[in-house]
């Protein structure tokens, strides 16, 4: 009984890590530009396709495919910000949301047109085989442990980046108060562009981690819709909140899939988000100050 619970938890946490990374992408962009990026899942899908090309068509080693996909997506993210998002800066939030939905459509359509990608489903080879590790009675998948480990590593890198790197501190400053940041000599627009790049890079990383679970296909980006609840549960605009939210959603899904009747697994994330919104409208880690006139 307890073993089973432990096993489910590891599976849930592994899935939650992917949600957390996509949610992290949402939050980074939201904090910096107050834009909710509905195309985040599709960016993740594109990143997975880049990694697929690097590893299958070009035969690169795993670490190189990760670097390649993250770098390529960072460029894509920055281009998106420059070309599509900057012209609509300052428009109502909902308009900007619609534009990111449009970007999602375009990405999804474009992927099906590129030769070698198309509408088929692909498997991506990983060095983590389908092996298992037995600890007493409990069986862990190597794949799941690898996902958890890599997510932890990325979070550590991001933490160090935001804490110590000049650019990371500049990003924090920009997301807290754009005007003050501009007065301090931070090029706010360029930083915002870099935030989009960073966020798209994180999405690519999430895509690579997800690839062995759902395989690579043009509609894998819809998992981004499950990362929304993750971001909202944690409080949109809180980076640790995104991680915690992702883990909560992953755990709830894994447990609901096992203990509750069929069908609850798919809606569990959304039920949780509705409950959290009713109890704490701004999420667990969200700021709850009053708006001043």
């Amino acid at each position: 009984m307890l073993n089973q619970l432990l096993q489910l938890s590891v599976a849930g946490v592994a899935q939650g890590c992917v949600y957390a990374l996509v949610a992290l992408g949402f939050v980074l962009i939201y904090k910096a530009t107050e834009t909710v990026n509905f195309a985040q899942g599709d960016l993740m899908m594109l990143g997975a396709f880049f990694a697929l090309t690097a590893s299958v068509a070009m035969g690169w080693p795993y670490w190189a495919t990760i670097l390649f996909a993250v770098a390529a997506m960072a460029v894509v993210g920055m281009l998106l910000e420059r070309i599509v998002l900057r012209p609509v800066l300052g428009q109502p939030a909902f308009t900007v949301v619609m534009i990111t939905i449009g970007v999602g459509y375009v990405l999804r359509g474009a992927v099906t047109m590129i030769p070698g990608w198309g509408t088929d489903t692909y498997t991506m080879p990983t060095p983590f085989s389908e092996g298992v590790i037995k600890v007493g009675e409990v069986i862990f998948g190597v794949q799941q442990l690898a996902v958890i480990g890599m997510t932890t590593a990325l979070c550590a890198v991001l933490y160090l980046f935001f804490r110590f790197a000049k650019l990371g501190v500049a990003m924090q400053a920009t997301s807290q108060n754009q005007l003050a940041a501009a007065y301090m000599g931070i090029p706010v627009r360029r930083v915002n562009m870099l935030v989009w790049g960073l966020s798209a890079g994180v999405a690519a990383f999430a895509g690579i981690l997800l690839a062995p679970v759902t395989f690579v296909h043009s509609n894998m980006g819809f998992i981004g819709l499950k990362a929304f609840p993750a971001a909202v549960v944690g409080g949109f605009g809180s980076v640790p909140g995104a991680i915690v939210g992702g883990l909560i959603i992953g755990m709830v899904e894994a447990l609901a899939g096992f203990y509750l009747p069929e069908g609850f697994k798919d809606v569990a994330a959304y039920v949780v988000v509705l409950v959290v919104l009713l109890v704490r409208p701004s999420g667990i880690f969200g700021e709850t100050a009053r708006k001043k006139v």
Binding site: V88, Q91, I99, V103, V106, G109, T112
Partner: peptide, 19 residues
């Protein structure tokens, strides 16, 4: 002229309208 064309056109129309 694959299945993706509609998604692309739809997305581009949406983006260009808003911009």
């Amino acid at each position: 002229a694959g299945s993706g064309l509609q998604a692309i056109v739809f997305g581009l129309v949406l983006i260009s309208f808003i911009v």
